[in-house]
Simulated scan of single mutants.
Amino acid sequence: SIEMPFKEAKDAIIDRFERDYLAALLEWSNGNVSRAARKAGLDRMYLHRLLQRHGLRRAAALD
């Protein structure tokens, strides 16, 4: 939407993408963060930080 500056609009789209991708990834891995990180090609600790940022890390998702 052009109702907000480019950077804000881009950040909002990326934020939505990350949250949706991470939620699907956690579902695929049954909450196993190490397995999810391997599937996504991400460092496990980086994935952990992304999950925390999006509020997706929960007790059921612990390694």
Rank of each mutant, 00 (worst) to 15 (best):
R35D: 04
R19M: 13
E8T: 10
A60F: 10
L50K: 09
G55E: 03
I2D: 15
R57H: 14
N30M: 11
W28P: 03
D63V: 01
F6R: 14
A60S: 07
P5G: 06
L51C: 09
A24C: 13
R57T: 08
R16N: 15
L26C: 09
L50Y: 04
L50G: 01
R35V: 08
E27T: 09
D20N: 15
N30K: 08
K39T: 09
L26G: 05
K10W: 14
G41R: 00
E8N: 04
H54W: 01
H48V: 04
D11R: 08
L47C: 03
L25W: 00
L25C: 01
K10N: 15
Y46S: 07
G41M: 09
Q52F: 05
L25G: 02
K7V: 15
A36M: 05
L26T: 02
D15H: 14
F6P: 04
L22S: 07
A61T: 12
R53W: 00
A12Y: 07
R19I: 06
I14N: 12
R35W: 05
M4I: 15
W28L: 04
R19K: 15
V33S: 00
A24G: 14
S34D: 06
M4G: 13
R38E: 14
A9W: 05
V33L: 03
L25D: 03
A59H: 12
A61F: 06
R49V: 04
R49E: 03
R44P: 09
L56Q: 10
K10S: 11
K39N: 13
A61R: 03
H48E: 04
S1Y: 07
A61C: 05
L50E: 01
I14R: 13
E3G: 14
R35E: 11
Y21A: 14
A40C: 02
I14S: 08
A24Y: 15
M45D: 00
H54T: 00
L22D: 02
Y46R: 10
L50S: 02
R19Q: 11
L25H: 03
G55Y: 01
I14M: 07
M45F: 05
D11Q: 08
A37D: 00
E27M: 07
D15C: 09
E8K: 12
E18M: 15
H48G: 07
I2H: 10
D63N: 10
Q52G: 11
R38F: 11
A36L: 05
K7G: 11
D20L: 12
R35P: 02
K39A: 13
R53L: 13
G41W: 01
L25T: 01
A37F: 06
E27I: 12
Q52I: 13
E8I: 12
Q52S: 13
D20V: 10
S1V: 10
I13P: 08
R58N: 12
Y46K: 04
W28D: 06
R49G: 07
L42H: 04
R16Q: 12
Y21E: 09
P5I: 14
A12K: 04
E27W: 07
E18G: 05
L26P: 00
A60M: 03
R38C: 09
R16F: 15
V33T: 02
R19A: 10
G55D: 10
D43G: 11
